[in-house]
Structures are given as structure tokens and as C-alpha cells.
């Protein structure tokens, strides 16, 4: 089966999961895309390296990146994109196999597939957590930068107002320029402040 066909299947399956979790209607298609992309990464890496856990780990990382991106552009909590997306990756099959092995009293097999299920769960959460915490760190840094810039603009404004030597026309021009700068800063800064998408400590 080709990768593209599987992408389509994963897309539709993820949209189904998104409906089960009652995501807002307008984000359905994006949730589906995140899930399908994550699953394709899993599929390709799993075929190349034949390791379910590593493939799941990388797929979760890619999924988290896409989810964060969408969360920012759509101004939605990132859960809306990630929760449906991780369901195709979760160890449902491994859990089922564990259960069947226990039913058949084949405890060696149960331990084997059971630990695989746990490792897959760890891989998913590990991948998500790493991406999210790195992003939270970057966001904090960007916010500090934006704040610094805001202070600088304010200082410049104060200086302009107090400057008596400048002729009025020049002053007007400079003022316009600062206003523009302020506007861009606000756009930038607001985007950061509004972003609730992931963990960030605010003391």
C-alpha cells in the first residue's frame, strides 16, 4: 500500500477521532492533517528502521510541532489538534494483544507486548513533552525580548516629547514612526501574550 493512500486513511480516521472528542467544527480538517502527518512519519520511520517505539517518539515530536503551529495560527488550545492526532499512535493494538495473551495464559507473551505498550505510551508523552517544553522556553525568551523592546520605544517617545530643539514637523514625523513601531510591537507582543497553547510559568 502506498504512503499516500495510508495518509488519506489516517486523515479520515483522525477526523473521526476528532468528532468523538467533540472538537470545534472549524478545526476538524486541521486536526485531521496533524494526525495524518504524524502517522505518516510513524509509518515511514517504522518501515525504514523497524522500530515501533522510535517511530512513535519521532512522530509525536512532529505532531507536537504541527499542533503548536496550528494552535498559534488558529488561536485554539493545542489539545484540539494533538489529542485526536495521537490516537492513531496510541498502543491500542499492543494493549489488545496483551489482553489476548493473558486470556490464553501465555504470560511471557503478555509481558513482552505489555511492555511494548508501556514503552509506546512513554515515547508519545516523551516526544510531546520535549517539544512543548522547548517551545515554552523559546516563548518566554521572546516575551522578555518584546518587553525590552517596549521599554525602549517608550524611552524614545519620552525623549521626543521633551526635546524642544526639534522643529514641530520633524517631531511629528518621528512620532509617526514610533507609533508604527509600537503598532508592530503590539502585534508581536500580543501574539505571545495571547498564546495559551502550552505550559508556561508566570510568577
Amino acid at each position: 500500500m502506498t504512503v499516500a493512500l495510508k495518509f488519506v486513511y489516517a486523515y479520515i480516521a483522525t477526523i473521526g477521532f476528532a468528532v468523538l472528542f467533540q472538537v470545534p467544527k472549524k478545526t476538524l480538517l486541521r486536526s485531521g492533517f496533524a494526525g495524518a502527518f504524524g502517522w505518516s512519519v510513524f509509518n515511514i520511520i517504522n518501515q525504514e528502521f523497524n522500530s515501533v517505539v522510535v517511530a512513535t517518539f519521532l512522530a509525536a515530536m512532529v505532531l507536537a510541532m504541527i499542533g503548536e503551529r496550528f494552535a498559534r495560527t488558529e488561536k485554539q488550545p493545542f489539545t484540539v489538534f494533538i489529542i485526536p492526532g495521537i490516537v492513531p499512535l496510541v498502543p491500542g493494538v499492543a494493549l489488545y494483544n496483551t489482553m489476548i495473551a493473558i486470556l490464553e495464559e501465555n504470560y511471557n507473551l503478555a509481558a513482552e507486548v505489555g511492555s511494548e505498550a508501556i514503552l509506546i505510551a512513554l515515547a508519545i508523552s516523551g516526544g510531546l513533552t520535549i517539544v512543548l517544553s522547548v517551545n515554552a522556553y523559546l516563548r518566554k525568551k521572546r516575551m522578555a525580548l518584546a518587553e525590552k523592546r517596549a521599554i525602549k520605544i517608550q524611552e524614545k517617545k519620552n525623549k521626543l516629547v521633551n526635546d524642544q530643539d526639534l522643529d514641530p514637523e520633524e517631531q511629528q514625523k518621528e512620532m509617526e514612526k514610533t507609533k508604527l513601531e509600537e503598532y508592530y510591537k503590539e502585534q508581536f507582543f500580543d501574539d505571545e501574550v495571547q498564546d495559551y497553547s502550552s505550559d508556561e510559568e508566570e510568577q
Binding site: 495510508k6 486513511y9 489516517a10 479520515i12 480516521a13 477526523i15 473521526g16 477521532f17 468528532v19 468523538l20 502517522w39 492513531p88
Partner: peptide
């Protein structure tokens, strides 16, 4: 959609 999900999932 539950039906759609599971059927497409096992296609995978």
C-alpha cells in the same frame, strides 16, 4: 464517525 474511524484505522 466512530464507525468511520475504526474502519479506516483497521485499513491502516
Amino acid at each position: 464517525f466512530g464507525g468511520i474511524t475504526s474502519s479506516f484505522f483497521i485499513l491502516l
